[in-house]
């Protein structure tokens, strides 16, 4: 009930921001700009969906940017050095990214490291690994060779619904990128996983009350490991979409993306105190972030200022999360009367 109203509030805020830029920024409400927004932030939305899992588990994954780079470089190497077919490369890259995420989970579960320090350490390690395996360094001259495999570049396809519906003569509808649909599929799948399966319910319990989960016989270690693996998987998928778009990969791919992903997830109502939130919110959060950043660019604001604003938005989002959390706790206190064991 309250979760739903929070989601509506977020949606309303998104629509309001969107309308604001339509009016204020001259070239915002154009078909090509909508294409930019959809293709440029679908992968952020996917990263945000992935990031929701560690955060629901009271953790965080700072390594997603590095996993993006790692998966991207694996695609690059397999394609340009080993000349594997695209249909084989994609699953390999996804598995590698999922394993990288699972390793984060392993560090958290088995070595009992704090999630942020574990993923900060793997951030460095994965980024280092990217340099080690970089085909750009190993094979001179490859850095200017684009990736041409249709399995990969085919992901960067746009659908012209305007012509399909035969209305392109009257209105210019934006062409919708395939990545947007992939994002929707990921959203639907993980929404189902969280909301309607035992695993999902268990995950909420592990995040909301780990002791209760353990005593209910839930294998908290496995759930946690799986949560971080999901984050890795999403980073891998985002990497593939990015490589398809850029037709290459660099060592710096995904730098700083953990921040957008965390911001989108928190804006989307996934609480840092664990166990509260959905994956729909983070997707709206990602496109809200995109709308603001693209809108500001069109208003001619420097990219450095945008960097400042991204930080400010992140602080505002956690501030809002904090207010909601305090409100929840106050309700709990009212119920629990004299003592709180929150």
């Amino acid at each position: 009930m309250t979760a739903r109203s929070a989601a509506f509030a977020l949606l309303a805020f998104f629509v309001a921001t969107f309308i604001f830029f339509c009016v204020a920024a001259p070239r915002f409400a154009t078909a090509s700009n909508m294409e930019n927004l959809m293709s440029g932030f679908s992968f952020v939305a996917i990263l945000a969906i992935g990031q929701s899992f560690p955060i629901l588990l009271r953790g965080i994954d700072l390594s997603v940017g590095a996993i993006v780079a790692l998966a991207g470089m694996i695609v690059f190497d397999l394609e340009l050095i080993f000349h594997l077919p695209g249909w084989l490369i994609l699953p390999i890259a996804l598995v590698a990214a999922t394993l990288a995420g699972a390793l984060n989970g392993w560090l958290v579960v088995k070595l009992k490291l704090q999630p942020f320090i574990a993923t900060l350490a793997t951030l460095a390690a994965y980024r280092g690994l990217v340099y080690s395996i970089s085909g750009r360094q190993l094979v001179p001259g490859l850095s200017t060779t684009p990736i041409r495999d249709p399995w990969i570049t085919g992901l960067e396809t746009y659908f012209d619904f305007g012509s399909l519906l035969g209305i392109s003569d009257w209105v210019t509808l934006p062409w919708v990128p395939l990545s947007f649909f992939i994002m929707l599929v990921v959203l639907a799948a993980f929404h189902f996983l969280l909301g309607s399966t035992r695993f999902g319910r268990s995950l909420y319990t592990v995040g909301g009350n780990p002791e209760a989960a353990r005593l209910a016989g839930i294998d908290t270690a496995r759930v946690t490991l799986a949560g971080y693996a999901v984050s890795g998987f999403c980073a891998g998928l985002a990497a593939i979409l990015l490589v398809a778009r850029l037709t290459t990969a660099t060592e710096a791919l995904g730098t700083g993306m953990e921040m957008s992903a965390i911001a989108a997830a928190v804006i989307g109502g996934v609480s840092l105190s664990g166990g509260i939130g959905s994956v729909v919110g983070p997707v709206i959060g990602a496109f809200l972030l995109g709308t603001i950043l693209i809108g500001l660019t069109l208003l001619g604001i420097s990219q450095y200022v945008q960097q400042i604003l991204t930080g400010a938005i992140l602080v505002a989002a956690v501030g809002y999360d904090r207010i909601l959390d305090l409100r929840r706790r106050r309700r709990l206190v009212a119920n629990l009367a004299e003592e709180t064991h929150a």
Binding site: T205, N209, A216
Partner: peptide
């Protein structure tokens, strides 16, 4: 109990 979840989810947790 997991406070954010429903009564039935808690009763049959896992």
């Amino acid at each position: 109990l997991a406070p954010a979840m429903s009564v039935m989810d808690n009763v049959f947790l896992g």
